[in-house]
């Protein structure tokens, strides 16, 4: 994983709370089996709107630091949400509160989720909107965000900071504790012999599952709201 220490780049104000992962990347883009190439899918529905912040020339394709409202990343566990942000160019997301699974996914992909109080986010929004396209700097070592003359602290836990700054791979870190995993497994077999195993497979008798067929609605005139 790439190391992340200091990020300087265009800050994008996203004045939205509850930005869910279906907004970050809709499910239709989850059919791919790759980890990259999701930049076009980022905020897909909102980007159809010419007024959306990422469509403004000051921000389009340039955003590196996203400044959003509280409860960012709620909803589905899709890591594709982080891949899409990363592919677009974002290395930092700032919010007063992140959903847990999204938060965990960021650090595994070299993206920093920086927690800042609502007042700091409001101030950053104001500064960024006063001068659209201005750059800001996030210093992970110092745990600070600097925008013009203003420097504000953000919150990140020590362990996540250490991993991001060194670009460590989680699996390698865990496998350093192989002895302890093996010791746990020996204890588990002794104390919990009833824990289920998926193999050999046990199940109810096989039964044929009949296939449903599509129903056509040739007379449907479209949604009620579209009718006069």
């Amino acid at each position: 994983m790439e190391k992340l220490t200091v990020v300087t780049g265009v800050g994008v104000p996203l004045r939205r709370s509850n930005v869910d992962t279906d907004q970050i990347i809709p499910a239709v883009f989850l059919k791919r089996v790759t980890k990259t190439g999701f930049d076009d899918a980022l905020f897909y529905a909102w980007r159809r709107d010419p007024e959306f912040v990422l469509n403004r020339p000051e921000y389009a394709g340039k955003g590196r630091i996203l400044v959003a409202g509280p409860d960012f990343g709620i909803g589905s566990s899709r890591e594709h949400a982080v891949w899409a942000l990363h592919d677009y160019g974002f290395r930092v997301v700032i919010s007063p509160r992140f959903a847990d699974i999204f938060y965990g996914n960021t650090a595994k992909n070299g993206v920093l989720a920086a927690i800042m109080p609502q007042e700091s986010v409001e101030l950053l929004w104001k500064l960024l909107e006063e001068e659209p396209g201005r750059e800001m700097t996030v210093d992970l070592g110092e745990r600070t965000v600097t925008c013009g003359d203003v420097t504000l602290p953000f919150e990140v836990n020590d362990y996540t900071r250490w991993r991001l700054m060194n670009g460590y791979d989680d699996i390698d870190l865990t496998l350093q504790h192989e002895d302890e995993i093996a010791a746990y497994e020996a204890m588990r077999a002794e104390r919990f012999p009833f824990k289920p195993k998926t193999i050999p497979a046990r199940h109810l008798p096989e039964e044929p599952v009949e296939s449903a067929r599509d129903v056509e609605y040739p007379d449907w005139q479209g949604p009620l709201c579209a009718r006069s």
Binding site: R78, E79, I101, I171, T174
Partner: peptide
């Protein structure tokens, strides 16, 4: 029981564990 991201899916396959606070 809880949801995890794809990196963690790989982590569980490789180690049968997860690093969690």
């Amino acid at each position: 029981a809880f949801g995890i991201g794809t990196s963690e899916v790989e982590h569980v396959m490789a180690t049968q564990t997860l690093s969690l606070k």
